[in-house]
Nucleic acid binder design. Structure first.
Lengths: 263, 263
DNA sequence: TGTCGACTATGTGTCGACAATATAATAGCT
DNA sequence: AGCTATTATATTGTCGACACATAGTCGACA
């Protein structure tokens, strides 16, 4: 698929190709939920590119339903900052602003550390096998090279840690940050596969569970911090690498690059 | 109005009494925004009690518009956890779950400290007079005993600090927590006035600005932490007080008292 | 008299249509 | 030829209506 640094390419959405079931929608409130989940997945996996326009009418045609459920789904996505709704104008997939990447890592590190600390402090006994299971789901997806499942199960694992920590406020905010990060993960998955770095990640997960099981708060904190740093360093390396590799010679002079700022 | 501890009273919403302008709605996207802001204000100021049902049809009649803009406003409120939308059933003002109050304070403390620290580190010079202005707005509302304006300007002050810190992710999450806390503020405003404790709060604001202006990170952190602790302690005192006052005889023995721990 | 089932009522989820607005495309003017 | 005003087009915000889902009510039956 060769995704380079065109983070805001307004690529036209592949039109039809939804609607797998030929039968009627089963339950009543499912329309909006289905649209939400589908778009959620497609945005986080970069199938819908950052900056791509999301036309309500077009989406309504694609999903074979009215604009009302589409609108509700977009509204919910907008609340998570996954799409931007411009008043009286189109709504777009939220652009990936790499200038705030350091701020993002800063926030992620903080929430990851505090939630992991809380898990080590307060985890109920039953949460340990649950965490093992989630970590193994991630391992399995890594073995299958299933990108979508990798980012999903990775988030699910960390969210489970936060749930074990017992603070719903912090867990919720951590979850939002993890979601936003899934787009960055997908951005450099290919790079990850070349370097084989994801296996290190998987090991770190199990180490974290050990610390949480042992109620070693400082140890869990240290691992959580190192985990974020891993992510940060790998992503930065990816940025440098892909810059050198992907840049050909037919550069368009009118295009300033990857950052069409509209602030 | 003598609000006691009936936090989940499903009091019927005062019916009409909105719609101050007799003229037509000026601009196009204003309907939904107006409904959102009105409900937002009424929820945070406890005019709409926690647990109160929000009937879409009734709200549509009240605001003199269709259910579509009502629905959008409720959807946005739901994303902030200010209302609960029960599928295929009614939507209610989010109940105030006091059992999670310790968790809330924990989260608020963390976000308040980190954002205040960041402000002391990164604040641009121009932000200091801005903070002074916001602190004075809070002082003025305290003098006027304007509850709504007090909680609003208090949040605005702290959000300005977070903005000066320069991390939009952490600032946003801090803002959400501050919003949720406004309901708790309103809950014990009367108690605050009896004890005169709010003037201490106002002084603390100016002390925090001093620390931020001096780039004293540790000092700012210390004040932020003390500020949260102030809030926690006052609210706990309020709970004990009103508990004794309002619940004389029908005390539930399963309730352990003022510290509803569930860890 | 207690329990189960159908019926009614309230309210949401979804639909199709219309009106208003922003962008573009075109015409008019200097 | 370049710039402004106007029309045209596309897309959103809002509306009223209908159908389904849930809760409460009533009646039948054991």
């Amino acid at each position: 698929m060769a995704k380079g640094l065109d983070l805001v390419a307004p690529s036209p959405v592949e039109e039809a190709a939804a609607q797998p079931e030929g039968v009627r929608r089963p339950v009543r409130g499912a329309g909006s939920r289905f649209v939400y989940e589908t778009l959620h997945r497609e945005i986080l996996s970069l199938v819908l590119r950052p900056g791509a326009p999301l036309d309500e009418t077009r989406l309504a045609r694609r999903f074979g339903m009215s604009r009302s459920p589409i609108r509700e789904a977009l509204s919910r996505l907008s609340a998570q900052d996954l799409v931007m709704m411009l008043p009286n104008r189109s709504t777009l997939v939220a652009p990936l602003d790499l200038t705030t990447f350091p701020r993002y890592v800063e926030a992620l590190d903080l929430l990851q550390r505090i939630n992991t600390r809380l898990a080590a402090q307060h985890r109920p006994a039953a949460s340990i096998p649950e965490l093992r299971r989630k970590a193994e789901l991630f391992d399995a997806s890594v073995k299958l090279q299933d990108h979508l499942e990798m980012s999903a199960s990775n988030s699910a694992f960390h969210i489970a840690i936060a749930a074990a920590g017992g603070n719903p406020y912090l867990a919720r905010q951590y979850g939002a940050l993890l979601d936003a990060g899934r787009r960055l993960l997908h951005l450099h998955f290919e790079y990850l596969e070349q370097t084989g770095g994801e296996y290190v990640l998987a090991d770190e997960h199990h180490d974290m569970i050990d610390m949480i099981a042992a109620r070693d708060v400082e140890g869990a904190d240290r691992l959580a911090h190192a985990h974020t740093r891993q992510f940060h360093d790998r992503f930065m390396r990816f940025l440098r690498t892909s810059y050198v590799d992907d840049f050909p010679f037919e550069r368009d002079d009118t295009d300033t690059g990857a950052e069409p700022n509209d602030r």
